[in-house]
């Protein structure tokens, strides 16, 4: 069964068509990459999928349910979480709190319950505490749990953002340029981490990436976007030898 189904997704800003008739099918356990030159519309696709933008036309179905037009928080609650290209952590909060906040929508106690400090509050808070620590340990961030997020090294911040997205309990994970700003060594670590996380949490992953080594090493399938149009789709090997893709990246003369 396909988890995420996108049909004819088009996004226009005024007269500018950022994405045109984009289509995608994500099956359970897939790991699919979206590449393309700068300004090709990759992040726009992400923003449409996660509800940050309302698409001009087209259909997006998550678990066979229409999600275009829903708010971002509703989509997250349905089971699709994301990270951002330019890391959006809660910078002045601790590593621990960054994760803990992502458990918010999974709590059941009401505001009145919190105000009166009823037993439900304590037990659920304790549960979240345990889950947060567990996640921190899995991501090897436990020792930094009391550190302010913005004090972490860049690579750790990326890791924390992925951990935070996982706290929202997704089945589909969208990663927007997870390797941006990383050196080759860090990228290699990240590639392993993504593969491992995907297996550990049984995720379906859709990612945007510029780093070809990461994309080629990780993805089973790759889509190439240029000026909002999908110019190619296929396995890493097919994409590497695709004439249109090379043209889009290097220009016609390069051939």
């Amino acid at each position: 069964m396909s988890l995420l189904e996108v049909r004819d997704l088009t996004m226009q800003f005024g007269g500018l068509t950022a994405v045109e008739r984009f289509g995608l099918t994500l099956n359970e356990g897939d790991i699919v990459g979206l590449i393309g030159p700068n300004g090709a519309g990759k992040t726009t696709v992400f923003n449409c999928l996660t509800g940050m933008y309302r698409p001009t036309s087209g259909e997006i179905c998550l678990f066979s349910k229409r999600i275009d037009g829903l708010h971002p928080h509703e989509i997250t609650q349905l089971g699709m979480a994301r990270t951002f290209q330019n890391i959006r952590l809660f910078k002045d909060l601790t590593v621990f709190d960054n994760i803990r906040i992502a458990f918010h929508y999974q709590i059941n106690y009401s505001l009145a319950c919190a105000v009166l400090r009823l037993p439900g509050f304590t037990s659920e808070e304790r549960l979240i505490l345990g889950k947060t620590d567990e996640l921190l340990k899995i991501f090897d961030l436990y020792d930094q749990r009391n550190e302010i997020a913005s004090n972490l090294p860049y690579g750790e911040q990326r890791k924390l953002e992925i951990a935070r997205a996982l706290a929202a309990n997704p089945r589909v994970l969208l990663l927007d340029e997870p390797a941006a700003g990383m050196n080759p060594h860090e990228t290699e670590e990240l590639t392993k981490l993504i593969q491992w996380v995907k297996d550990r949490f049984q995720l379906t992953v859709f990612l945007i990436e510029h780093d070809m080594r990461l994309v080629m090493g990780l993805c089973q399938r790759i889509l190439v976007l240029d000026y909002g149009i999908t110019i190619a789709e296929g396995t890493p090997h097919e994409i590497q030898n695709n004439r249109a893709v090379v043209e889009a990246y290097l220009g016609e003369e390069a051939l």
Binding site: R82, R88, L89, F90, K91, I101, H104, Y105
Partner: peptide, 14 residues
Amino acid sequence: VAIREDEMAAEAMG
């Protein structure tokens, strides 16, 4: 507090 820190990230966290 999450809204204060980053409204878009808060929304993305559900």
